[in-house]
Simulated scan of single mutants.
Amino acid sequence: MATHPDLGKEIEVLFRAESEALFRYASTLPEVDRARAEDLVQTTFVAAMEDWSRLGRLCPERQRRWLYAVLKNKAIDQWRQGRRLQLVGDCEEAREHARSETEHHVLSVVALDLAWEMISAMPGQRQRVAFLCWNEEWSSREVAEWLGITQETVRSHLKLARDQLMRAVGPAAPFRDDQGADWIDGRKAGS
């Protein structure tokens, strides 16, 4: 920054001549309110003081163009910084959503693994019914025909299997009664 004795007076003369028009210009820029416009004018003149050794040698018209260019660049920098902060905030929100999605996924996988472990330990006929209905998405009629049992027996095995899973796995069971209401004859409604 230049430190010659007339620096303050020269900057003051420039400020008095250009600050009002510079403020009006700053107020026309996107996302610039009155307070930001005032700040931009102030930071522009601070930059003028810091670069006065070069700026002071320019004619008044070139000084004016320099001030407008610096103010515009500072406004763009502030806008970019604000965008960067907003994007960082968006990234944080996305990361938080991903963390909650990951947590939900992990808990679902654990519950599903436990459920299939429980199904594997069920009596043979119930295990086959559960597997064919829930994994292969067969209807109770298809399971009954395949296993040579009645559809009522298939539904009974499904209810016993679901009850057993609810006791063992609890609310994380993938085949809960509130979801079970969506199951019709061993198939997901709408399938």
Rank of each mutant, 00 (worst) to 15 (best):
W116D: 02
H157S: 10
V109W: 06
I149Y: 00
Q127C: 14
E136M: 13
D178V: 12
R155S: 14
A26V: 10
E10Y: 00
L7S: 07
R126S: 08
Q63H: 09
L55E: 02
R54T: 02
A75P: 06
W146K: 15
W52N: 02
E142M: 13
R54G: 02
T153W: 10
R34F: 12
S120F: 02
E31F: 10
A111S: 12
G89P: 00
A115K: 11
L114S: 08
L22R: 00
D113R: 12
V110I: 13
A130W: 06
R83K: 14
A2K: 10
L7Y: 10
S100W: 03
G89L: 07
G170W: 05
R99L: 14
G148P: 08
S108P: 00
E101A: 11
A75G: 06
N135I: 03
W138A: 05
A69V: 12
F23L: 15
V110A: 01
E31A: 14
V109E: 06
S156Q: 09
V154L: 03
A121G: 07
A21S: 06
W183E: 00
R83E: 14
W183I: 15
T3D: 09
L22V: 01
T3C: 08
A26E: 09
A94G: 03
K9S: 10
R54S: 08
E18C: 15
F131N: 08
P171W: 04
R24D: 09
M1T: 11
Q164W: 08
R99Q: 05
A94N: 04
F45I: 05
L165Y: 01
W66M: 07
E93L: 14
M1S: 09
S140G: 15
S53F: 03
R176M: 12
P30Y: 07
L112D: 05
V88I: 13
D185K: 10
Q125S: 00
P30A: 04
R65L: 11
E38R: 15
L114K: 13
A37Q: 12
P30W: 12
L112G: 06
C59Q: 04
R187C: 09
D6M: 12
R16C: 05
V109K: 11
E142R: 15
A181Y: 08
A115T: 11
R65V: 15
R24T: 11
L114P: 01
K9N: 05
A98L: 15
H105T: 15
T3E: 12
D177H: 11
T44N: 04
W134Y: 10
E103A: 14
T150D: 06
G148D: 01
G124F: 05
T150Q: 03
R162F: 02
D113S: 07
P60G: 06
K72G: 03
D77A: 15
E96D: 14
D33F: 05
Q164E: 09
Q151R: 15
Q42D: 07
Q86G: 11
G56N: 01
R64E: 10
W52G: 03
E93C: 00
A75F: 04
L107R: 14
S19M: 01
R128P: 00
M1N: 04
L22S: 07
K74T: 10
K159E: 01
A26R: 13
A35S: 12
A37S: 14
A181Q: 13
A168Y: 01
R62W: 02
V88K: 15
E142D: 13
G56K: 09
P171D: 13
G148T: 01
G82R: 12
A47N: 08
L158H: 03
V154F: 06
K9A: 09
T3S: 09
V46K: 11
